[in-house]
Structure formats: structure tokens, C-alpha cells
């Protein structure tokens, strides 16, 4: 149906949008959202390759399931940390969390 490289380009676009979000957003929660975008793109990439290289075995799809799982876990932890930081400093602005600054 669709050539593999088109799907890959699609996932690359999603990935780079996510990357921009990580670097440009100030709110910690929004950064985590952008990370989710990136992981999502990765999963799409994996599925595309799986259909191309391993159509009968579906290993990429299983890999994608794991990626989603881990992404969810990581998001939970990340939000827990963000909440903790919010409670201690009163803000989730990543610019303000620079105690390790020179």
C-alpha cells in the first residue's frame, strides 16, 4: 500500500516535532508530553520496519508494545518527580530548577 519510506518520513517528522517540544517548552509537564510524542514516533517507526522486514513474525510490533509500556511507566515516574519539584519550589518551570548551575 504505502511505501516504507513514507511511513519512515512520517515518523521522522513526528520525532522532530517532539524534539523541538523538548527543547523549547518551559513547563515540565509539557516537556514530558513532547517526550511522549517522540516515543510514539519511535513506535510507528518500529511497526513500519516490522512490516517491511519481518511481516510474518511481527517482532517490531511486539517491540512497539514494549515501547508503549515503558513510555507509560516513564511518564508516571516523570510526573511524580515534576509534582515533587512543584511542591518544593512552587513552580514547574524548568528554567527555575538550576541549582546545579555553576
Amino acid at each position: 500500500m504505502v511505501p516504507t519510506e513514507h511511513v519512515l518520513v512520517f515518523s521522522a517528522i513526528l520525532f522532530c516535532i517532539g524534539m523541538y517540544g523538548v527543547m523549547a517548552r518551559r513547563n515540565g509537564v509539557l516537556v514530558l508530553m513532547a517526550i511522549e510524542l517522540m516515543l510514539n514516533a519511535v513506535a510507528v517507526n518500529l511497526v513500519a520496519f516490522s512490516n517491511r522486514i519481518d511481516p510474518q513474525g511481527g517482532s517490531g510490533i511486539i517491540f512497539a508494545i514494549f515501547v508503549i509500556t515503558i513510555a507509560a511507566a516513564e511518564l508516571g515516574l516523570g510526573l511524580a518527580i515534576v509534582l515533587r519539584v512543584y511542591r518544593m519550589r512552587g513552580s514547574v518551570n524548568v528554567d527555575e530548577a538550576d541549582l546545579m548551575r555553576w
Binding site: 517491511r52 522486514i53 519481518d54 511481516p55 510474518q56 513474525g57 511481527g58 517482532s59
Partner: peptide
């Protein structure tokens, strides 16, 4: 495509 563990393709 290659052979995977779930069976020949």
C-alpha cells in the same frame, strides 16, 4: 524480509 523466530516468512 528475513526469517524470524515465529516462523518462516
Amino acid at each position: 524480509p528475513r526469517v524470524t523466530a515465529t516462523g518462516p516468512t
